[in-house]
Simulated scan of single mutants.
Amino acid sequence: MTSISMTVNGKPASGEVEGRTLLVQFLREDLRLTGTHVGCDTSQCGACVVHVNGEAVKACTMFAADADGADVRTIEGMANADGSLGTIQQAFQDHHGLQCGFCTPGMVMSAAALLKDNPKPTEAEIREYLEGNICRCTGYHNIIKAIQAASGQLTAVAAE
């Protein structure tokens, strides 16, 4: 067992993990942050995307011990300080960018990483960036609209 500590959503977190423990397991099982989903266990679906030191990472591909000392942000850390939905989360709700909700945490985290690097992405850039995230319900149209809205590019007329 290895002792690890990190900052998760702005708060200190620590625990004992086996060397094979994945970051997604540590977040869900030890810290009880169950918003990060496990969809495929093979890094194909993107449901487990979190930010580690500001970079989008599929938490099913990273050992928890490799995040020792890191700053980790999960979907639970995307809300505003008062608990209300953050900008991207609100855009997903407003533009129906979710259906079953299973992929939504990973989509929101990926969208946040995209908008950090490219504040005004084109539709083609959004589609390309989301290639590592699978949604089996929405057909992506409303997810793209939500990201455009979160970036300030979707006007009220276009949102209808």
Rank of each mutant, 00 (worst) to 15 (best):
T2H: 11
T2Y: 01
T2D: 08
T2S: 12
S3T: 14
I4H: 01
S5R: 08
M6A: 15
T7I: 08
V8K: 00
N9S: 12
N9W: 00
G10K: 07
P12M: 06
A13L: 03
A13E: 10
A13W: 02
S14M: 04
G15Y: 07
E16Q: 14
V17W: 04
G19Y: 08
T21W: 02
T21F: 05
L22A: 09
V24K: 04
Q25P: 04
F26T: 04
R28K: 09
E29Q: 15
E29I: 04
D30G: 07
L31P: 13
L31F: 05
L31T: 09
T36V: 05
H37N: 15
H37M: 06
G39M: 02
G39F: 01
G39L: 05
C40R: 06
C40V: 05
T42P: 03
C45F: 03
G46L: 04
A47F: 08
C48T: 10
C48F: 00
V49Y: 00
V49W: 00
V50P: 00
H51S: 13
V52P: 02
N53V: 06
G54W: 06
A56H: 03
A56L: 04
V57F: 00
K58P: 11
A59V: 07
A59P: 00
C60N: 11
M62P: 05
A65S: 12
D71S: 14
D71C: 00
R73D: 12
T74M: 04
I75F: 06
E76V: 07
E76P: 14
A79C: 14
N80H: 13
N80C: 11
A81P: 13
L85S: 12
L85F: 11
L85W: 00
L85A: 15
G86D: 10
Q90I: 00
Q90S: 03
A91M: 05
A91P: 07
Q93E: 13
H96V: 02
H96G: 09
H96P: 10
G97S: 12
L98H: 09
L98W: 09
Q99C: 03
Q99S: 12
C100M: 06
C100H: 12
G101T: 10
G101W: 05
F102H: 06
F102E: 12
F102Y: 15
F102I: 06
P105A: 10
G106H: 07
G106F: 01
V108F: 01
V108Y: 00
M109C: 11
M109R: 01
S110D: 03
S110V: 04
K120M: 08
P121Y: 11
P121N: 10
T122C: 07
E123R: 10
A124G: 12
E125F: 05
E128C: 03
E128P: 08
E128N: 14
E131Y: 02
N133G: 15
I134D: 01
I134H: 07
C137D: 11
T138H: 11
G139E: 10
H141C: 03
A150C: 06
S151V: 05
S151W: 05
S151E: 06
G152P: 02
Q153K: 13
Q153F: 04
L154D: 01
L154I: 06
A158Q: 15
A159F: 08
A159E: 14
A159Y: 09
